[in-house]
Amino acid sequence: MTTLPLTFLALAFGAEPTALDALKAYDALMAPPHFKAVTKMTAHRDDGSTREYRMTVLKGEGDKSRIWFSEPAAVRGQEMLRNGENLWVYMPNLKRALRLASRESFQGGDFNNADIMRADYAADYDATLEVDPSSPDTWLLKLKAKTKDASYDSIKLWVQKAPLGMPVKGEYFTASGKLLRSAKFSEVKDFGHGATRPSLITMRNELATQRFSELVFDSLDVTAPAPDSKFALADLGR
């Protein structure tokens, strides 16, 4: 826990960050140790119509997160739980939880489950840091999956030099090198208690370019309690 402040101190004196510094800074901004957020996802489809989902996200220490869906009515009561590599969905119409694969599409939108429920890129990817001449205020992080269980085989992530790690855009690739999705991070917002991050993530499906999904953070509370009991499989549906 002491390495990150020391890194920031070094950076303040002009030292160039390492790729891992930049990646950890991104993880710290996008996934604080624990938080509770109220979000809305809007999926824009090929025909121009939209589908909206409202949910509450609770992130706990480590790689734990849980989502409660409140809208639309067809998915109200549905929940998702992530604990490390394990992902479950609670289905109210089945009255039980089922295991899910991380790469499955999140509610049919253009995010996948891991995009929403896991942001520990430093654990999942090896990173190299490059300069992108076309974007002098950013670093280009090139990420390569450490294991085949990672959501994407490789990622290009543009993050601001200051504040370090603040994401600007991302590109997500398959193992064959095909561009699968691209993301734009915008509308940086101060949510209080030091939590300043983009409040809007626009994820575009590059295989069907008319499709994209927007994830808006209405609130983000980094002081909300996230006890371990909320991340127990037995707690789903309560």
Partner: peptide, 24 residues
């Protein structure tokens, strides 16, 4: 289509749920 059946049973349950362990 397992979703057609929503009904349960009349019961009482005591459970000790933890993050990776549960006794019921």
């Amino acid at each position: 289509n397992p979703t057609f059946q929503r009904a349960g049973a009349w019961l009482g349950m005591l459970e000790f749920p933890f993050e990776k362990v549960a006794l019921s």
